[in-house]
């Protein structure tokens, strides 16, 4: 049987979510943002909640997320997405509201908005993409840059005595009573993608049940910022990022996960 005979509509088992627009992602080749966009929209599509979901885009590489997700979206000032989401959810409590933020947006300039939205237990989802660097502005040090890791504003590596330590904000917000679900995922292998999608589904389930804030971190790559090829970047991420930012659930059903 020739493979061309397999390619028929009735044999289709996987396709790009119909809730993504036709516009090609503006992300660098291999960037995890695209995979995460895809997964979120797959879940929204499968739940059939496009008409009652509003997303908030950040400032950073994913500032144009609204160009790719075919749904109503707002684009926030740098770091302020949880404030926008707070207002939207309180005015429209029956709609699904999520933010999509990078590490600079969420864990540096927007730390106050992040922590207070979580502490109020706003019934929203915060998707947090952590690649340890400022991608869009050209590879500067992020709040999550690893000790010793070079960036354009710490070209000799992050010296924690001068620049402070990287911030594990997911562990931090998991301590807050308002946070019902906190998890850390990645999307660089098929197995991790499947797990990440389950985490996204869980987050929407939490919002449906009005249980409080869901905080879903994705440890992701930045090939351009890390100056590695996409596949090498994923290997570097496994070797360096995961030991510092271990994958897995941190808080489930309002209870911290003990390891």
């Amino acid at each position: 049987m020739d493979f061309k005979d397999i390619i028929k509509p009735e044999n289709l088992v996987y396709r790009r979510s119909s809730l993504l627009t036709d516009k090609p992602f503006s992300y660098c080749p291999g960037c995890g943002h695209g995979t995460i966009h895809r997964l979120i929209m797959e879940v929204v599509e499968e739940l059939g909640i496009q008409e009652i979901t509003v997303g908030i885009a950040p400032v950073g590489c994913s500032v144009l997320a609204y160009e790719f997700m075919n749904m109503d979206m707002q684009q926030a000032a740098h770091g302020r997405a949880p404030a926008l989401a707070t207002a939207l959810k309180r005015l429209m409590p029956d709609k699904y509201i999520f933010t999509y933020q990078g590490d600079g947006d969420l864990a540096a300039i927007g730390t106050a908005e992040t922590i207070h939205a979580c502490n109020r237990g706003e019934n929203i989802i915060i998707f947090f993409v952590n690649n340890g660097i400022y991608g869009m502005t050209g590879g500067q040090m992020a709040p999550t840059t690893l000790p010793g890791m070079p960036a354009s504003t710490c070209p000799f590596g992050r010296d924690v005595n001068i620049m402070g330590n990287p911030l594990k904000i997911t562990e931090l917000v998991a301590q807050l009573p308002g946070v019902h679900f906190a998890t850390r995922q990645s999307v660089h292998t098929p197995r991790n993608v499947r797990r990440a999608k389950k985490a996204i589904q869980m987050a929407f389930e939490v919002q449906k049940n009005k249980k409080g804030t869901s905080f879903v971190e994705f440890v992701s790559n930045c090939n351009s910022g890390w100056k590695l090829s996409p596949v090498a970047a994923n290997e570097w991420m496994e070797q360096h990022m995961f030991p510092f930012y271990p994958l897995g659930d941190i808080k489930v059903d309002g209870n911290l996960v003990t390891k």
Partner: peptide
């Protein structure tokens, strides 16, 4: 800062 950005969110939804 948070208050004005909450206003942005609300206004963006037509409120």
């Amino acid at each position: 800062v948070a208050a004005i950005n909450m206003c942005y969110g609300a206004g963006g939804a037509g409120f």
